[in-house]
């Protein structure tokens, strides 16, 4: 809050102190986002400034907007709320509100002004990575999809996004599409081909949208994803998923022998190729209770997974 004006008297006109205050919300706002301003002018001697306007000036003195004083609340004149667009430049901004000089009856008010500040943040950049394969063999090529979204109205089409490996080395740079990913509103995406590390293990990579560069400043956005490099397979596991009661194939069942995954076809069959070792097999759904098998995989094998239907709850269950 800041006050201004002072001096007194002429022959028949007295001068009074007035105080001007601006409320700004939010105090932190995204670049180009909405700022709500509301003003208050308090006079040393009661007076109604209804219809007068408070000027809002930016840091260069440029007029941003004016706000009309709409009523008296006790000893203060209140403005309505006005929404203005925040600057695009990130950082702290100091603006000024000016209540121009005016005379009411025998009372003269000089200019009253106050400064107020707020902070502009760059837009967030949200990155999504999907369709990374659950496993990849050493030094083999694999693909992922990545997407970028600005939570505001920016459309990041054409942005460059880097993919970096576990050592921070850039492995690829993708350019986002001109159209959003199907089913999303404004998630712009790219398909990226990558090469797996030449060592086994689970590696944490990331996709990084550098931010800035666009008309509206954006913060850097990052999404991590796992790259699991596995040895060559030694055993072929054929899973046959059938409904336990009807003995019919279960199509679309998820087969997981971590980290290996597959989905059954219309015959209820899925094939997983794995190195020798101990595994837990899950065959699951849809609408079936997961089938679990634990064992050692040493050779090619066929496993019949009889899945019990998830009947949900019967009337008796629901009403019990």
């Amino acid at each position: 809050m800041c006050g201004n004006t002072t001096s007194l008297g002429g022959d028949d006109v007295s001068q009074a102190i007035s105080v001007c205050r601006i409320e700004v919300s939010p105090r932190e706002v995204e670049a180009g986002g909405d700022l709500t301003l509301k003003g208050q002018v308090a006079l040393a001697s009661a007076g109604d400034l209804h219809g007068q306007r408070v000027l809002i000036e930016d840091h260069d003195g440029g007029l941003v907007t004016t706000i009309e004083l709409t009523g008296v609340d006790g000893e203060s004149n209140q403005t309505g709320e006005v929404v203005v667009k925040a600057p695009l430049r990130p950082g702290t901004h100091v603006w000024r509100a000016v209540c121009p000089a005016q005379t009411q009856g025998s009372v003269s008010h000089e200019d009253a002004s106050t400064s107020f500040s707020f902070t502009v943040k760059p837009h967030a950049t949200r990155v999504v990575v999907w369709d990374a394969p659950p496993t990849v063999e050493r030094a083999k090529r694999f693909g992922i999809k990545l997407g970028v979204k600005c939570p505001f109205e920016c459309r990041p089409k054409g942005w460059a996004v880097d993919v970096r490996d576990h050592e921070g080395q850039r492995q690829a740079t993708a350019t986002l599409s001109d159209a959003p990913w199907p089913g999303t509103d404004t998630l712009y995406y790219a398909e990226v081909d990558l090469t797996a590390p030449d060592a086994e293990g689970l590696f944490s990579w990331d996709a990084r949208a550098p931010g800035s560069g666009a008309e509206v400043p954006h913060a850097e956005g990052t999404a991590r994803f796992g790259v699991r490099v596995v040895p060559p397979p030694e055993c072929r596991v054929t899973v046959v998923a059938v409904d336990a009661e009807r003995h019919t194939p279960v199509r679309g069942a998820t087969v997981v022998m971590h980290p290996y995954r597959a989905v059954t076809d219309e015959r209820g069959v899925a094939e997983v190729r794995v190195p020798k070792g101990a595994y837990r097999l899950f065959v699951s759904g849809p609408n079936h209770v997961p089938f679990r098998w634990d064992g050692e995989m040493t050779t090619d094998v066929t496993i019949r997974a009889e899945l019990a239907l998830d009947r949900g709850f019967s009337d008796a269950d629901i009403w019990s």
Binding site: V128, V129, W130, D131, A132, G147, W181, G183, T184, L187, F225, T254, V256, H258, R261, R280, F282, S284, P290
Partner: peptide, 14 residues
């Protein structure tokens, strides 16, 4: 969770 059922990534938009 790994004891009871498969675990699936939550990654594909929307």
């Amino acid at each position: 969770r790994e004891a009871d059922a498969p675990m699936n990534r939550i990654a594909t938009p929307p």
